[in-house]
């Protein structure tokens, strides 16, 4: 197996995630795309752990999963709050910070 086949898959997933974050209007979908990016990072960590015979790669991947869970919980709570207040979770309508 090539190193690059894993890394390139990770890169592709990451860019798909970036596209999702930037292009999707629905806030929940944005959060999902962020999960995609986080998983792309996990692939890299595990690949490098495999490459260098280091257990740290797996440890970091586990930490990322834990942090991602926390992020989703808080993120969804925020989205829920936004929905209650504005009856919409379209990110492009949220521009209170407009200069």
């Amino acid at each position: 197996m090539l190193v690059n086949q894993f890394l390139l898959l990770g890169a592709f997933l990451f860019c798909t995630g970036v596209y999702g974050v930037l292009a999707r209007r629905n806030a929940v979908m944005v959060l999902m795309s962020i999960e995609l990016m986080l998983n792309a990072v996990n692939i890299n960590l595990l690949t490098f752990g495999y490459l260098h015979n280091a257990v740290s790669g797996q440890v970091f991947a586990l930490f990322i999963i834990a942090v991602a869970a926390a992020e989703v919980a808080v993120g969804l709570a925020i989205i829920l709050l936004i929905y209650r207040n504005r009856a919409s979770i379209n990110v492009d309508e949220l521009d209170l910070m407009r200069g």
């Binding site: 797996q58 991602a68 969804l76």
Partner: peptide, 29 residues
């Protein structure tokens, strides 16, 4: 990639818990 424990955690946490959260989120909003 020989990371069985991470794979297990992936199934448990992501597909088991996070996805349920997402589905709730989708339905509530």
């Amino acid at each position: 990639l020989t990371a069985e424990f991470v794979a297990t955690t992936q199934f448990l946490v992501y597909i088991g818990a996070v996805m349920v959260l997402f589905l709730f989120g989708v339905m509530l909003t």
